[in-house]
C-alpha cells in the first residue's frame, strides 16, 4: 500500500510540474498569455481610478478626464504667473520640474505678438537651455528631421516623405514664433507635438534648431580663435574647410 501511495505522490508531482512548468529559466522559458493569478487578492485591485484606466462612472467609460475650460490642472502654474514661470524656465536645469500650463494667450504660449509671429525666446537661453533642447530634439524631432536637422531622419528611410530640412533658407529666415507654433500645432503632414512637449521645452527646441542651422552653415570665422588651430591642424588650411561646411 505504501508503495502505491508513494508512486501516486511522485506521479502527481510530475503531473503538476509538467502542467505548471518551471519558472522563467533561460533553458525553459515560461511565457504565458494567461493573466497572472493573484493568489491573495485582498485589496490588490481597489475601486479607484488609476491613470489611463477605464471607469464605469463616466458615460464614455474613461477614467481620464479632459480639463474643464477656465480651470488649471493641479500641479500647473496659473496663467497669471507667467512672469514667474518664465523666470523658472530661464534657470531650469535637470532634473526638470517646471511645468507650465499652456492656457495663456501671450507670446510664450502662442509664438505670436499681436497677429504676427514674434522673434526671440521668451526667456534668456543658457547652455542648459540648449542642452535641454538637444535632448528633447533627439527624442521627439530627430526621428523624422534627422540628428542635424537635414530632414533625413530614420523615418524617411521607411517611406515618410515631405520632411522639411531646417537648413533651407525659408526656415532659416522663419520667425522663432512660427517654428514654435509648428512644434505645437504641426504643419502640412506633420501633426502637432504640443500635447507631448511642454512649453519651455518647445522654446528650448527652437533654440537648438537655431544652433543646428548655424552649425550647418558655419564658416571658419564662427570657430573661436582659440579652437581654430585644432581644426586647421587636422586639415589642410582654413580656406578648404569653409566651403566644405557649406
Amino acid at each position: 500500500m505504501v508503495r502505491y501511495f508513494l508512486f501516486l505522490l511522485v506521479l502527481i508531482t510530475i503531473l503538476i510540474v509538467s502542467i505548471a512548468g518551471l519558472r522563467d529559466y533561460s533553458f525553459l522559458p515560461h511565457k504565458t498569455k494567461r493573466p497572472p493569478i493573484e493568489i491573495f487578492p485582498d485589496m490588490v485591485r481597489q475601486a479607484k481610478v488609476k491613470a489611463q484606466s477605464p471607469s464605469d462612472f463616466y458615460a464614455d467609460g474613461r477614467g481620464a478626464r479632459s480639463h474643464v475650460d477656465g480651470t488649471v490642472p493641479v500641479g500647473y502654474s496659473a496663467p497669471e504667473s507667467s512672469a514667474q514661470a518664465s523666470e523658472g524656465v530661464a534657470t531650469m536645469g535637470s532634473p526638470y520640474n517646471v511645468v507650465i500650463f499652456s492656457g495663456k494667450q501671450d507670446y510664450a504660449d502662442t509664438g505670436k505678438v499681436g497677429t504676427n509671429w514674434g522673434n526671440g525666446l521668451p526667456f534668456n537661453a543658457t547652455m542648459a537651455t540648449l542642452e535641454r533642447g538637444r535632448e528633447r530634439y533627439q527624442i521627439q524631432c530627430a526621428v523624422c528631421h534627422g540628428a542635424t536637422g537635414g530632414g533625413n531622419g530614420i523615418a524617411t528611410k521607411y517611406g515618410l516623405v515631405g520632411v522639411a530640412s531646417f537648413n533651407q533658407q525659408r526656415i532659416r529666415e522663419m520667425n522663432d514664433g512660427e517654428i514654435y507654433n509648428t512644434i505645437v500645432n504641426g504643419k502640412n503632414s506633420m501633426l502637432g507635438y504640443g500635447s507631448v512637449i511642454q512649453v519651455p521645452d518647445r522654446w528650448a527646441i527652437v533654440a537648438y534648431i537655431r544652433a543646428l542651422q548655424r552649425s550647418q552653415n558655419a564658416t571658419i570665422n564662427d570657430v573661436p580663435a582659440t579652437e581654430r588651430t585644432a581644426l586647421t591642424g587636422t586639415n589642410a588650411s582654413a580656406s578648404t574647410i569653409a566651403p566644405a561646411k557649406q
Binding site: 505548471a20 519558472r23 522559458p29 498569455k33 494567461r34 493573466p35 493573484e38 493568489i39
Partner: peptide
C-alpha cells in the same frame, strides 16, 4: 505561489 512564477513571462 510567488510573482516569480505567477507574473514573470506574462506575454498577452
Amino acid at each position: 505561489f510567488t510573482p516569480k512564477y505567477t507574473r514573470v513571462g506574462y506575454q498577452p
